[in-house]
Design a protein around this nucleic acid. Structure first.
Length: 255
DNA sequence: CCAGACGTTGTT
DNA sequence: GTCTGG
DNA sequence: CCAGACGTTGTT
DNA sequence: GTCTGG
């Protein structure tokens, strides 16, 4: 769940959305994958919000080898406060991971994997709930890394998967980033499905070598694509995966 | 006491 | 580092 | 998350 | 099948 995403907003828009003092120096990315360096928002020692680049895939402090980070790209929100690998970061080192969208792969009616772009209805920026950790190699050189929390899927994503990444509402950014907040677990919950949408995209996104705007373009001829479960051909197609929040069970085709 | 795990997802 | 299992 | 590798020896 | 790399 949430193993690939994209961030193509203008740096000034990122600064505005996350309350940064300065626009970050970032280029648009349409295909961000685990083990790559990703920009995250955290509080500087002085308490200002800043962007830092860290490796996606959290390496716990006690790890003997950083390769464990490849399997720590997500952390379950339900258990993150207790798990040895995450609890220290959850308590003191939370961050926001800016994104314009993320990708999911779903089995089509023919069984092939169909990638989907998922994001906000207005296409706007949002922040994944992330955790930061610092690992020191034997020589004492630091490696900063992060993970993205997951939770139960909301009604929109539930048509595709049972889990979704945790997205923090803008009004909650300050609490999420505050290391002294008494109850950050309150912010670990599914995001409002009415604000979200999805559409199928080209399988070009499958390969991390493809990092361009074609990765997010709606696939024009994706009809016939049905989710493996919950498909019901009796209902007419909706318009391009626009959110129709909860919606009755046994509804509709996806596209 | 020491040894070994420490994590998630999806699929069968 | 810290917890669980033996 | 998906794609791609997964191995050694000796010779050119 | 399973691990590594991106």
């Amino acid at each position: 769940m949430c193993g690939r995403y994209e961030l193509h907003a203008h740096p000034a828009a990122i600064a505005l959305a996350f309350g940064l003092e300065h626009p970050p120096q970032l280029r648009a990315r349409y295909n961000i994958a685990p083990t790559q360096d990703v920009p995250v928002v955290r509080l500087s020692p002085a308490g200002a919000r800043e962007i830092v680049q860290v490796r996606w895939g959290l390496v716990p402090r006690w790890a003997k080898d950083p390769s464990i980070g490849q399997r720590m790209i997500n952390a379950r929100g339900e258990t993150v406060a207790e798990k040895p690998a995450f609890r220290n970061a959850f308590r003191r080192h939370r961050c926001l991971v800016p994104a314009n969208g993320f990708y999911e792969w779903t089995a089509g009616s023919d069984g092939r994997k169909q990638p989907l772009w998922i994001g906000m209805r207005d296409g706007g920026l949002f922040g994944f709930a992330g955790l930061l950790e610092r690992w020191l190699d034997p020589d004492g050189h630091p490696l900063d890394s992060c993970t993205i929390l997951t939770t139960q899927a909301n009604a929109l994503i539930a048509r595709l998967h049972d889990r979704m990444p945790v997205i923090v509402a803008p009004d909650d950014y300050a609490r999420w980033l505050d290391p002294d907040d008494p109850a950050p677990s309150e912010l670990v919950k599914p995001y409002d499905p009415a604000r979200m949408r999805f559409h199928p995209v080209s399988t070009r996104v499958n390969s991390v070598r493809h990092d361009d705007a074609s990765c997010i373009e709606p696939l024009p001829d994706a009809d016939g694509f049905l989710p493996l479960q919950g498909a019901d051909e009796a209902s007419p197609p909706d318009d391009e995966g626009a959110a129709q929040a909860p919606e009755a069970p046994g509804q509709a085709r996806l596209f």
